[in-house]
């Protein structure tokens, strides 16, 4: 049984049809690359899976049973973590505070519970180390580079042990060393039975870590192929529309 199963997922924003009848499945330990031109609907699909909004039509199943995510926490409670394309960080807070936002580590003193800054700084530092990112947990996000911010957003997905990790262009702004670490992370996630959906415009990344690639064009899925059965040239053709579908 597949971990996540989308059936005819459709999303309209008024007159704009962002997604039309998307079917997609993903199993444990699998990584799917989601590709498509700007505005093809990739982020919209990710946001639906992450519970940002409900689809206009269609079904989402997790381990075979239908779910309705009314808010992001519902998706998180079902084992789905996401790195948003715009990262969704609070500039005025520290890196560690952002990593733990909404899931703060607390200590108890009698009836009073309070933020355990030390534990959060240490755990955040550990996560950044794991990502080989030179991100200081105590720095304000405001003062951080694009790559450091991305590391913060990725570190957030490491707090729980999710079944499915959605990454919306996680490697868009980072250095070669960190891209390798993110790809490494995806490999490790797969090895430990996690599923990953990777949205990326970087063909080599997708071909390195993904088992399958799905292509969206103007809101419809035009291809869903095993990596071993396709080539970067074919995928490029599918994205641009030079190849109708496959």
């Amino acid at each position: 049984m597949s971990l996540l199963q989308l059936e005819g997922v459709t999303k309209s924003f008024g007159a704009i049809h962002a997604l039309q009848g998307i079917d997609l499945t993903i199993s444990e330990g699998e990584a799917v690359g989601l590709m498509g031109d700007n505005g093809a609907g990739k982020s919209t699909l990710m946001r639906i899976i992450a519970g940002n909004f409900l689809p206009t039509a269609g079904k989402i199943r997790i381990n075979g049973s239908e779910v309705h995510f009314n808010k992001p926490v519902d998706a998180r409670n079902n084992g789905i973590e996401i790195v948003y394309q715009d990262l969704a960080l609070c500039n005025n807070l520290t890196a560690a505070a952002n990593v733990f936002l909404g899931r703060e580590i607390r200590k108890k003193f009698g009836p009073i519970s309070y933020l355990d800054h030390k534990a959060m700084f240490e755990k955040a530092a550990e996560l950044f180390r794991e990502l080989k990112s030179e991100t200081r947990p105590r720095d304000l996000v405001k003062q951080m580079s694009g790559g450091q911010r991305q590391a913060v957003a990725i570190a957030r997905t490491r707090l729980s042990d999710p079944k499915l990790v959605l990454m919306d262009e996680p490697t868009a702004a980072i250095s070669v060393r960190q891209v390798a670490e993110v790809l490494n992370l995806i490999h490790r996630l797969k090895d430990s039975g996690h599923a990953v959906i990777l949205v990326s415009h970087r063909m080599p990344d997708v071909f390195e870590v993904c088992d399958r690639v799905s292509v969206l064009r103007r809101g419809t899925k035009v291809a869903d192929k095993q990596i071993s059965e396709t080539s970067p040239e074919e995928v490029t053709g599918l994205i641009t529309g030079a190849i109708e579908n496959a």
């Binding site: 992001p72 969704a88 609070c90």
Partner: peptide
């Protein structure tokens, strides 16, 4: 402001209410 979760959330909302919402606050 320094030690309570509520205080942390208020500051987060002031920084980026959308991000705070997505984080489940």
């Amino acid at each position: 402001w320094r030690y309570s979760t509520w205080g942390r959330w208020v500051i987060a909302i002031g920084g980026n209410a959308d991000a705070a919402k997505l984080a489940g606050i």
